[in-house]
Design a protein around this nucleic acid. Structure first.
Length: 206
DNA sequence: CTTTGGATCGTCT
DNA sequence: GACGATCCAAAGG
């Protein structure tokens, strides 16, 4: 299990440390390979920029909570809340390397898509958890899990969890501007594991 | 290969 | 009433 103290800091510092950790839920698990940091009142790209609301309340909670939000009328995205309670901050999980339950991941992905029956060519393993909305759907995480504690030691096997299996974060993570934001796009607060094929977006030039 | 637009609805102005 | 921390498929080069 991840130490809660690790998360009780500025999201920009916590984000690269989450690379290598494991996000698990419902018999499925993946290693975090791409994240983005979002801060509070000083970050115009953050949901918490204009203060606390019913939607972003989890962002103001204590470190280790899960913040799940709904967007574009159809997508859920999962964040790890960090920083002290009362202060907004979170790290958006953008991509995972699938580890366990790949069959269930693929089933969730296919169940969620619109239109007719499956087309030829299902998603390859490395695309199962590529992108924030995709990984939430693959793991079965949605609005019901907003505000749950990822670090509580209870026996809920059906509960989302953040695990540390001893794999260290990269000593020199790749780093660049956040994706899909209009304001604050210049801040290099996106971090990923260099060379990792499960990372979303275009393959980095190097 | 790149570009474009549709889907779809909770949240905040 | 407008617009998303997105994704995918279809159309165009």
């Amino acid at each position: 299990m991840v130490d809660r103290g690790l998360l009780d800091a500025d999201p920009v510092e916590v984000a690269p440390l989450l690379l290598g950790k494991v996000l698990a839920h419902g018999g499925r698990a993946g290693r975090i390979v791409e994240v983005e940091a979002y801060r509070g009142a000083d970050d115009p790209a953050s949901h918490a920029f204009r203060g606390q609301t019913a939607r972003n309340a989890a962002m103001f909670g204590g470190p280790g909570l899960l913040y799940v939000y709904f967007t574009y009328g159809m997508h859920w995205c999962a964040n790890v809340v960090c920083g002290p309670e009362g202060e907004a901050g979170a790290v958006l999980v953008r991509a995972l390397e699938p580890l366990c339950g790949l069959g269930a991941m693929r089933a969730s992905r296919l169940a969620g898509r619109r239109g007719g029956a499956g087309r030829p060519g299902e998603p390859p393993d490395r695309e199962l958890c590529r992108g924030p909305a995709n990984l939430a759907r693959a793991l079965g995480i949605d609005g019901r899990h907003d505000g749950v504690d990822l670090l509580s030691s209870g026996t809920g096997a059906g509960r989302p969890r953040l695990l540390d299996d001893g794999v260290a974060p990269p000593t020199r993570p790749a780093r660049g501007p956040r994706i899909g934001v209009r304001w604050g796009a210049e801040e290099p607060w996106r971090f990923w594991v260099a060379g990792e094929p499960c990372v979303s977006g275009r393959p980095p030039p190097d």
